[in-house]
Write a protein that binds this DNA or RNA. Structure first.
Length: 243
DNA sequence: AACTCTGCCAACCGCACCGTT
DNA sequence: CAACGGTGCGGTTGGCAGAGT
């Protein structure tokens, strides 16, 4: 095994960007012979690349029928709605977008996220935020107009309320009877952070069926901007952590 | 003009899965 | 049944180009 790895590492394959000449060689070969086994494609086409690299290049760039350029509004909506249902299953999402590759959609999603300021928090950042706003510190702010507005938005939205309960007020959540008040801690009622609107825990499959409407998305974006205003420089929202 | 910052995107890496030997 | 090779997938990285200072 170790010897095999050593032998493999001796075989130097070219890495990095593909030259037009390499593209031409690969395109010609695959169009003429089909790909079959990718490692033999690399050899037979006269490329100093490994099979994996050839496959990726073909799928993401050379394959006929690929669309180039910006995503249309319809494509963007498709990606957003499918991602809500499927999560980071880029290949499955790509199946619904003819001419787009999983890599392209993945890249688009990440840049789109950045544009929308929906930045996924690191574990520690998330924990810090939770710790800062949970239970104690936030309660003193609840009487303010801004806070009431945020809570109003949260109520209108059919996203799992734990999203807002965790960040805004567990008392509010408990008062609605959504949490078991006899539990030692509100967190005891959480199942991996997932609660449906009525406060009952749900399975992954149930959750996937709980479609999020466009209205909800708009309300959530509104809510997000309020929170960002309210906690300047400290608030960070992660849809896919909870939704 | 030179430098830094930022976003985008192509490509790599590691892992899991599957079929074959 | 284990070992191995091929493939597919998702996460991550690195380089480039354009914007900003």
């Amino acid at each position: 095994m170790v010897a095999n790895r050593a032998l493999k590492s001796i075989k130097k394959h070219k890495k990095g960007l593909w030259s037009p000449d390499e593209d031409q060689k690969l395109r010609n070969y695959v169009l003429k012979h089909g790909h079959g086994c990718w490692s033999s494609v690399a050899i037979n086409a006269g490329l100093q690349r490994n099979g994996k690299s050839c496959r990726l290049r073909w799928i993401n760039y050379l394959r006929p029928g690929l669309k180039r350029g910006a995503f249309s509004v319809a494509e963007e909506e498709t990606v957003l709605s499918l991602h809500r249902i499927l999560g980071n299953k880029w290949s499955q999402i790509a199946q619904h977008l003819p001419g787009r590759t999983d890599n392209e959609i993945k890249n688009y999603w990440h840049s789109c996220l950045k544009k929308r300021r929906v930045v996924k928090m690191s574990e520690t950042e998330a924990q810090t935020t939770k710790n800062n706003y949970k239970y104690g510190e936030i309660r003193g702010l609840e009487s303010s107009t801004s806070f009431q507005h945020i809570e109003r938005l949260a109520q209108q939205c059919s996203f799992p309320k734990v999203l807002f309960a965790e960040w805004l007020s567990f008392d509010h959540f408990k008062n609605e009877g959504n949490l078991d008040n006899h539990s030692s801690s509100p967190e005891d009622n959480l199942v991996d952070g997932l609660l449906v609107n009525e406060g009952t825990s749900c399975s992954e499959s149930d959750r996937k069926q709980d479609e999020v409407s466009v209205d909800d998305m708009l309300r959530l974006e509104d809510l997000e901007s309020c929170l960002i205003d309210y906690f300047p420089g400290e608030f960070c929202m992660s849809y896919d952590m909870y939704v």
